[in-house]
Amino acid sequence: MADQSASAALAARALALVDLTNLNDGCTDADIDALCARAVTPQGQVAAVCVYPAFVARSKARLAGTGVKVATVVNFPAGGDDTAAVVRETQQAIADGADEIDLVMPYRAFVAGRRGFAEEQIIRVKAAIPAPAQLKVILETGEIGDPLLIHQASQVAIAAGADFIKTSTGKVKVNATLEAAEIMLTVIEETRRDHGRPVGFKPAGGIRTLDDAAAYLALADRILGPDWATAATFRFGASGLLDALLDVIKGGTGSAREGY
Rank of each mutant, 00 (worst) to 15 (best):
D146C: 15
I101P: 01
R88G: 13
G113D: 12
G44E: 09
D212A: 05
S5Y: 00
T253V: 08
G237D: 02
A98D: 03
T169W: 10
A84Y: 04
F55D: 01
V187M: 04
I150P: 08
V87P: 11
T83Y: 10
G145N: 06
G259M: 12
S5H: 09
I207T: 08
V86M: 07
T177I: 03
T72D: 05
I129S: 05
F234Q: 03
C36F: 10
A11T: 08
K202S: 00
E189D: 09
G225V: 07
I123T: 13
K69H: 09
M105D: 01
V248C: 02
I138R: 08
Q45S: 14
Q4C: 07
A14K: 09
A118I: 13
A215S: 13
A231M: 04
E89D: 11
L246S: 02
R13T: 13
R62Y: 00
F55M: 02
A61H: 03
D102C: 09
I122L: 03
I32C: 06
L210P: 14
A85T: 06
I188N: 04
L10S: 12
R88H: 11
V125M: 04
I183F: 11
N24W: 11
L149F: 08
T230F: 13
E189G: 08
A238W: 05
L241P: 15
T230K: 11
A11Y: 14
E100M: 13
T169K: 01
S255M: 08
L103I: 00
L139S: 04
A232S: 09
Q134Y: 10
P226T: 05
T21G: 09
I122A: 03
H151A: 10
L135C: 02
T90I: 04
F110N: 02
P106C: 08
E89M: 13
V137E: 00
I188F: 11
I32A: 09
V87G: 05
I183M: 12
L210W: 10
Y260E: 05
T167L: 03
V104Q: 01
A34T: 10
V40I: 14
R58A: 12
A61R: 05
V174N: 03
G196L: 12
A153R: 04
D163T: 04
V68I: 02
D81H: 09
P106M: 12
A6V: 07
R38F: 12
V74G: 01
D163G: 02
I249E: 05
G79E: 03
I223C: 11
T209C: 01
D243M: 07
E143K: 11
N75M: 05
A47F: 15
A153W: 02
A93R: 01
A8H: 14
C27R: 07
V156C: 03
Q121T: 15
A57D: 11
A57Q: 12
R115W: 10
A153D: 01
I32F: 14
I129Y: 02
A84R: 13
M1A: 09
E143N: 10
L20Y: 07
A8D: 07
L219M: 12
D221S: 12
R115K: 14
D243R: 06
F117I: 04
P53Q: 03
A109R: 14
E182H: 15
P42R: 07
L245V: 05
V87H: 06
V74P: 01
R124I: 05
C36V: 04
A181H: 03
